[in-house]
Nucleic acid binder design. Structure first.
Lengths: 246, 246
DNA sequence: AAGTGGTCTAGACCACTAT
DNA sequence: TAGTGGTCTAGACCACTTA
């Protein structure tokens, strides 16, 4: 006897495996509900249940009146995140959404290690890739760093790399901390990104450091589908426990 | 007349709003399938459909034999990802789910730059943090690297850091590439992570390189709720365009 | 023992697509 | 016109929790 797993799961698995292994390439039309029911000797509700599951898994899409199809993956927008290339908007056309000075809220104050209420520059960008909005960038930076110079975020002509801009202002950024999480998109974000509120969004909380001192912190909210963060990490050469390699 | 939206969506909305607005706090028991059916004058299948939808949205969980409940949000687990600390299971207790040799599927073959069908070791782990499963780790590695030695994944006593193990086998890993994306969880994963299929999952595709040559590639699927990837990046000191800093 | 969720069957009507 | 997916009804059995 086999372990008796629910039949709709077995039907789903019979399609999931070939899809994941590429034997059913994107765009392929799947057997209809009725055909699946006959093949697997189950009721049509069961085959329907299986296909519905595959839809929630993002593997299958339905075209009413036509059939079920293997889903085509939306083009991935690659966001390179490397030690030597921190600018998140590297390859994107940034659209300025405004820059102002505000008082530090508790969350940002904690990340920047300043008092709540301290004066900050807040800058907003919307990054597009091929016209499609892919990321909202909100940046906070103490005004103290660049006030009086012409290197403040208010003066930055375009969305210049903050590392370069701060370097010109005399602050050397040498470390970056990025915290990646997922949470449902909220209303202003969902609107800008063209998704529905409640859909998952990739959130990066990034902080630039100069030595031990945080000098800039950002919120990067990315539409998850077809967004990919690419981290290139170099391993500091080190000694593994015993027997070093030849 | 209202726009006639499907009844199961109306039933779902009648529960979703109070949940999101906090009027039905986490842990609250919801009306049973039968009760919902009577209240909304629909069949039990419709109320079931509505509850199932709320489960895929992560708002509701079921306890068979007991009822449907408003879901409690789990605690956050931090996954440090640093150049000098690549082991994803660093702080976790890994649970071995098995290791075998398989033929390379197209996806893995491309990442490892080997022919489709090439012999690979596939290793699976389930990482837990405080008993709670937080990450599924599937690793592929050409058998050619360690075959005949006692450094193959099959011999690795515990979930040892692959960098260290490969170093013992004579392969120096010096670069890591991590691609972070979000996609709906699929069935075997959702079961292991204790979430619902369709719930967003954080996916890291990690590849270890020895020089230009990929030597190991992994799928890291993390439950997004309360999972946080922390990347610490060092910036290679470099010259910004004009005027170097003092 | 009663209630509950998980699964399953055997039908049905509608709007849509393909031909 | 036939086939398809989306929705819906009215039943049913099982394993489990709750009381």
């Amino acid at each position: 006897m086999e372990t008796s797993s629910p039949r709709y799961l077995m039907v789903a698995e019979s399609l999931r495996r070939p899809i994941l292994e590429g034997r059913l390439p994107p765009g392929t039309r799947l057997p209809s509900r009725a055909q699946l029911a006959v093949r697997h000797r189950v009721s049509e509700q069961v085959s329907r249940h299986a296909l519905r599951l595959l839809m929630t898994e993002g593997l299958v899409e339905s075209r009413p009146g036509s059939g079920y199809y293997v889903r085509r993956r939306p083009m991935a927008h690659r966001l390179p995140r490397t030690g030597s290339d921190t600018g998140p908007m590297g390859t994107f056309l940034g659209e300025h959404l405004g820059a102002t000075t505000i008082a530090a809220a508790p969350a940002e104050a904690a990340r920047l290690n300043v008092r709540v209420g301290e004066s900050l520059y807040r800058t907003r960008h919307l990054a597009r890739s091929e016209e499609i909005p892919v990321m909202i960038h909100t940046s906070w930076e103490p005004t103290a760093l660049t006030r009086g110079t012409n290197h403040s975020p208010l003066h930055a002509s375009t969305d210049e790399n903050p590392v370069d801009r701060l370097a010109r202002a005399g602050t050397v950024v040498d470390r970056v901390l990025e915290c990646v999480t997922v949470r449902p998109a909220r209303e202003p974000e969902a609107e800008l990104l063209g998704t529905e509120p409640g859909q998952a969004a990739l959130v990066i909380e990034r902080t630039h450091f100069s030595g031990q001192r945080p000098v800039e912190t950002s919120h990067l909210v990315a539409a998850p589908e077809g967004c990919e963060l690419v981290y290139r990490l170099s391993l500091s050469p080190r000694m593994p426990s015993p027997r070093p390699s030849p």
